[in-house]
Design a binder for these strands. Structure first.
Lengths: 354, 354
DNA sequence: ATGAAAGCGCTAACAA
DNA sequence: TTGTTAGCGCTTTCAT
C-alpha cells in the first residue's frame, strides 16, 4: 500500500498553534503537558488558539519523543468455526471503553494459530504498544514467560495457575465462589442431589469451579459420590451426560462449568419431557447470550467484566509508571443471575440479541 | 501515566544494524523498502544483520516520516446490557486476521454513547489511523458524512441505504437473498404458509430482508396476506407474535429477520408442545451462537464474514493508494445452514461454545 | 550502488 | 515564565 494519501497535511502542528498564539512551540507544548508552568493569560491564549485550530498533537511525533504509544496490545484470536468466545468479546468492549477514559487505545493483533507467541515480539520491537493484556492464562504461560523475559509490561485476566513464581499483576474472577453460589442456589430451591457438569481434569479453571460445587455440597452434608462429571465443553456431550445422570432417578440439580454444558442439560430435559425449573434445576456459567435466549431462560453465574476491565486498567497504569503493585492479584466476586431454569416464576427472557 | 518505562531502549535501530553490517543507515533503509537497489551481497549482509539483531523498524519514526500509521480505526461500541453484537464480534476477528496479512492493525476506540461522531476526529487529527471501517450504516450516515467532509478514507460494512450520493466503497451481504433462501428452503421441505417475522418498518435492513421473503412467496404463488409481521427484535416479542400466528392454525413456516426472533418462535412451539422441524419449520438469520445451541438446533442464514473482511481490506488498500474503486460496492451472497428446526434428521448441534 | 544531509512534529534539557 | 537547542528513528532528496 503506497502511502500516497496525506491526511495529515491539512492538520495544524505545534508550530501553527505557536504562531497563532504568538508564543514559541515549547510554550504550546507546555500548555498541553505542564499547564501549571504557564502564566494564566498565556495559557488562555494558547488554549484559545488550540481550540480555534482544532489542534491535536501528532501521535507519532509524540511517541517518537516520549516512547509511549498509549496503546495496549491485545491478541485477538481468529474466530474459529463453532467457537465463540462471547465472554472475551464482552470483556473487550468494556476494556476499550475503560481505557478511553485515560487516553489509551486498544491495538488488536493476530498471530499464527499454531504459535501463541507470534505477534508479541514484533509489536514490542516496533514499539507499537506500551503494554499487553493477556486473556487466557490457562493456556498462556508461554506468553507470560516471553513477556517477562523481554521485560515487557503486561497484566493478565486470569490467575497464573501453573506458575508459582509469576510476578505479574493479574485480575481474575473467583470461579469456585461462582460454582458455590450456583450450588447453594440449587440447594435453596429444594434440590438435594446436585450434580456437577464440568470440563476435563486438565482445565485448571474447571477444577477450580468444581471445588466450589464440592465445598457447597460438603457444607450441606450431601454425599457427592458419582455426582461429579467431567466432559468436553459442548452441548451434545453435556446432553448425553445429563441423560446418564437422569437415568439414576435421584438427580434433580445441575451446576455446570459453562452455559454450553447447561444448555446441553436443558436439551436432555426437553427430550425427556421434564420441565426446567420445575422437575429439575440447571445453572450455567458466564451468563452468555445462550443463557438469555435458551428456553425457558437459564440461571447463570455472571462475571463482573466491567469491574475486571477497570481493575486491569488500574494495574496497567501502575505497571507503566513503575509503581509497585500490591497485592499482585485481584480476585473479584461473581454474581448469580436467576432465570426460569431454577425458578419458574423468574422473569421471562426478553433480551435483545442483535 | 508517566512515560517512565522505556521499553525501546533495548531494541536496535537502523544505526545499530548499519554499524553491524558495515554500511550506512540509508542502505539499511533501502534493504527494507527498496531491496532491488542493493547489490546482492550487500543485501544479504544487511539482512543477516537484521536477523541477528532481531531488528524491526520503529513504527513511530516511520509513521512520522511516511505519514502512514498502518492502523485502521474501528469504533467498538460499549457492550450494552442485553445487547450482544455477536455478528460484529465475529467480523472483527476475521478483520484483524485479514489485515495482519498486509501488516495492518486494528485500532479499537470508543466514543461517547450519545455522540456517534465522537472519537473519529481526534484520531484523524492525531494521525493515529490511516482509515476507518464503519460497521453500521443504517444508523451511521452521520459518520460517513463527517469522514467524507474531512476527506478521511473509509470503507463501510453495509450499504449507504439513505444516501443516494454516497461515493465511498462498501461491502454488504445480500439480505433479501438470504431471506429468499430461507423461504425457499421452508417451501422445499413442505411448508406452504410461511410467515415472515421481521423488525420494525424503520429498519432498512429489515425491509430488505423482508422483500426476499416476499419475492420467494410470490414466485411460489402463495398469498402473503397477514403473514408478514413486524416487531421488536427480542425473544419475548417474537414468542408472542408466533403464538398469534399459530392460533391461525395454518401457519407452519417461519422465516425470521434474526436468530433472536427465530428463538422466540422456538419458545412458542415448545410452549404448545409442537416439534420444531416436524410440526413447524423455523429459520433464523446470522447463524449466531444461539442458533447453534438452541434446541433442537436452528436453521439460519449465514453471512460470509470472512469474505466481507477480505473485500474490505482490498477496498481499503485501493482507497489508501488512491486507486479508483470500480464498482464502488460489493454485494456478497449469504448461505443457509440447515439444522433440525427445519429438517429433523439434520446433524445434532454439538458446537463448542466457549 | 551507496552515502550525506535534511526534516517529519514533538518534548527534555537547558538558557535567558 | 518563556524561548532555544537538540534529537527521538526513520525516509526522501540529492550527491557521489
Amino acid at each position: 500500500m503506497s502511502p500516497t494519501r496525506r491526511l495529515t497535511d491539512q492538520y495544524p502542528t505545534l508550530a501553527t498553534v505557536a504562531e497563532r498564539a504568538g508564543v514559541s512551540r515549547q510554550t504550546v507544548s507546555n500548555a498541553l503537558n505542564n499547564p501549571e508552568l504557564l502564566r494564566e493569560d498565556t495559557l488562555e491564549r494558547v488554549q484559545a488558539a488550540i481550540a480555534e485550530l482544532g489542534y491535536t498533537p501528532n501521535r507519532a511525533a509524540r511517541q517518537l519523543r516520549t516512547r509511549a504509544s498509549h496503546m495496549i496490545g491485545l491478541r485477538f484470536e481468529p474466530a474459529q468455526e463453532g467457537t465463540s468466545n462471547a465472554l472475551m468479546d464482552r470483556f473487550v468492549h468494556t476494556l476499550v471503553e475503560t481505557m478511553a477514559k485515560t487516553g489509551h487505545h486498544v491495538l488488536l493483533f493476530s498471530g499464527a494459530v499454531d504459535d501463541p507467541l507470534d505477534g508479541y515480539d514484533d509489536l514490542l520491537r516496533a514499539t507499537a504498544v506500551d503494554a499487553f493484556v493477556i486473556t487466557d492464562t490457562y493456556a498462556g504461560t508461554a506468553e507470560t514467560e516471553l513477556l517477562r523475559r523481554v521485560g515487557a509490561p503486561f497484566v493478565t485476566f486470569g490467575r497464573p495457575w501453573d506458575d508459582p513464581d509469576a510476578a505479574h499483576p493479574w485480575v481474575d474472577v473467583d470461579g469456585a465462589r461462582g460454582a458455590c453460589l450456583a450450588t447453594e442456589h440449587l440447594l435453596s430451591v429444594g434440590h438435594r442431589r446436585v450434580a456437577w457438569l464440568g470440563w476435563e481434569e486438565t482445565s485448571r479453571i474447571g477444577e477450580d469451579r468444581r471445588s466450589g460445587w464440592r465445598r457447597a455440597m460438603d457444607d450441606a452434608g450431601i454425599d457427592t459420590a458419582r455426582l461429579g462429571i467431567r466432559t468436553t465443553d459442548n452441548v451434545d456431550a453435556a446432553r448425553m451426560e445429563a441423560h446418564k445422570l437422569l437415568d439414576d432417578g435421584t438427580v434433580t440439580g445441575f451446576a455446570c462449568a459453562s452455559d454450553t454444558l447447561a444448555i446441553g442439560v436443558l436439551h436432555a430435559l426437553h427430550e425427556r419431557g421434564l420441565r426446567p425449573g420445575v422437575d429439575a434445576g440447571v445453572v450455567g456459567f458466564d451468563d452468555s447470550l445462550g443463557a438469555h435466549v435458551s428456553w425457558p431462560g437459564l440461571t447463570s453465574v455472571r462475571q463482573p467484566l466491567e469491574q475486571v476491565a477497570v481493575e486491569i486498567v488500574g494495574l496497567l497504569h501502575a505497571v507503566l509508571s513503575l509503581k509497585p503493585v500490591e497485592p499482585l492479584g485481584r480476585l473479584l466476586e461473581p454474581t448469580l443471575v436467576v432465570r426460569r431454569s431454577t425458578v419458574p416464576e423468574a422473569p421471562r427472557p426478553g433480551t435483545r440479541a442483535r
